[in-house]
Amino acid sequence: MKTVITEEDVRYVANLAKLHVPDGQINALTKQMADIVALADKLSDVDTSGIEPTNHVIPVNNVFREDEVRPSYPRDEMLANAPMSSAGCYFVPYTFDE
């Protein structure tokens, strides 16, 4: 398999990842991505038919927590790291969807 990486691909993915790629860098980044993806493409040589994917390297299951309330953190402590807060809340620009 040989995947062709276009500037369009990089732009699409950068947008998904909420990263801004300046026009001046798109070319270089696309080239780097193409190299890395070419490395990743090597995997298509491996026959993996019938092989289960490993989600956990040592299989464990059923790790649970009991439903017991513990105190939450003081709001001031939680908001102390927020770049902007107001009225006990984190503050962001308008999110209206229209």
Binding site: A40, L43, S44, V46, T48, I51, E52, T54, N55, V57
Partner: peptide, 10 residues
């Protein structure tokens, strides 16, 4: 695919 290859490596 990588997770499948991971199984083989493991």
């Amino acid at each position: 695919k990588a997770q499948q290859v991971r199984t083989i490596i493991r």
